[in-house]
Computed example of a mutant assay.
Amino acid sequence: MNTAETILLNAKKSILSQSESIAKLIDFLNEDFIKTVELIYNSKGRLVVTGIGKSAIIAQKIVATLNSTGTPSLFLHAAEAIHGDLGMVQPGDVVICISKSGNSPEIKVLAPIIKNFGNTLIGMTANEQSFLAQESDFVLLAYVDAESCPNGLAPTNSTTAQLVLGDALAVCLMQMRNFSSEDFAKYHPGGALGKKLLLRVKDMLDTTHTPQVSPEASIKKVIMEISEKRLGVTAVIEHNKVIGIITDGDIRRMLNDRDSFADLCAKDIMTKNPKHISSNLLVSEALDVLENNKITQLVVLDNEEYKGILHLHDILKEGIV
C-alpha cells in the first residue's frame, strides 16, 4: 500500500471510529439529560461551563453555541477557577463540568466547592464511577469505547462525544424556547444570516444617488444621468411620481434599432409601470423579486414617493447571497 492509500485509509478509520462512538451516545441519554435540560431552561441564573485541558476547549465551543441560541452562558477554566476566578459563579447559576476521566486534580478540588456554593453541578464525563460523577447532581455520560488516536491516548472520540452532547443540549433548549431563525439573527447581526433576516432595503439604500429624468428629457440627458449615478438605470419622474424607468439595456436596444435618436425623449423609450418595492421590505425579499423577474434593479417607493434604486450588486456586496 502506498503512502496516499495509507493516509486515506487512516482518515476513513478515524472518521468511522468517531461516528460509531457518537451513534452509541443515544443509548446513554436518560432521565439525567432530561432533568438537565429542564433545569437550565428554568434557571434564573446563567449556565457556567468549565473543564480542563481539551475538555476546556470543548467547553468554550459549547458556551459559544448556547449564547448564540438564547441560553446565557460563560466559560470558566477549571484551573483558573481554583485560583481566583470562582467569583464568576453566582447564586442561581447552573454549572456543567466537563472531564473525560472525571478524576483530574483540578476537578477534585473544584467540584466540592461548587456544591458548597449551593449551585447545581452537572458532570459530563466518560466515567460514571468517577469523582466528578459521584459529586454531580446529574451526570451526562460521554462514554466512548476508545479514541481513534493510534495510541489510544489523544482525545479524539471523547472530545467529539462531549461536543455532540453539548450540541444536543443546545438544540433541546432552542426547541423549548421556540427559538426562531429571527431570534438567531438577533445574535448574529453581522453575519450573512443576520443580514438576510434583519437587513431592510432602507438600511442599504443610497439616497445620494437617485437617478431621475423628466419624460421630456433628451436621450443624451438620459445617458448622462445613467452614467453619472452608476446604477445602470434612471427613473422617469412626472409630477413627483415614477411613471417609468430606462435601463442601460433600453439604451442599447434603441441604438440597435435606430440610426438617430435626436427626435426621441425619455418617455419614448421608457418601460412603464416598473417593478417597485417598499424601503421597509427585507433585502432578502427584494432579492426574491429581482430573481423572480430576472431583473437587476428595483425602484423603491414609499407611498408612491420615489426613494431611490436598489441594485442587485448592492445586495451581493452585503454578502446576503
Rank of each mutant, 00 (worst) to 15 (best):
K12R: 13
S14K: 03
Q18W: 15
E20Y: 04
S21L: 05
K24P: 07
I26R: 15
N30S: 11
D32A: 13
I34G: 10
K35G: 02
L39D: 03
I40F: 07
Y41F: 08
T50D: 09
I57A: 05
I57T: 06
I58A: 08
I62P: 02
L66G: 02
L66Y: 02
S68C: 07
T69S: 10
P72I: 05
A78I: 00
M88K: 13
V89R: 04
G92K: 05
C97P: 06
S99I: 07
P105G: 08
K108R: 10
N116V: 06
L121Q: 09
L121R: 04
I122Y: 03
T125Q: 15
A126V: 02
N127S: 05
S130T: 04
L141T: 10
Y143D: 12
D145V: 06
C149N: 10
P155C: 06
T156G: 03
T156L: 14
T156Q: 12
L163W: 00
V164D: 05
D167G: 13
D167Y: 01
A170F: 00
C172N: 08
M176L: 09
E182I: 15
K186T: 13
K186W: 04
L193R: 00
K195Y: 14
R200V: 09
R200F: 02
K202D: 14
D203V: 01
D203M: 02
M204E: 10
L205H: 08
T207Y: 11
T210N: 14
P211S: 05
V213F: 07
E216P: 06
A217D: 00
I219R: 10
K221W: 05
S227K: 02
R230V: 05
R230D: 12
I237C: 01
H239I: 04
I246S: 14
I251P: 14
L255P: 03
D257C: 02
D259L: 04
S260V: 12
F261D: 12
F261P: 04
F261E: 13
A266P: 09
S279C: 12
L282K: 13
L282A: 07
E285Y: 15
L287K: 10
V289Q: 04
E291V: 00
I295D: 08
L298Y: 08
D302L: 06
G308Y: 11
L310W: 14
L310D: 10
H313D: 14
D314Q: 11
V321H: 14
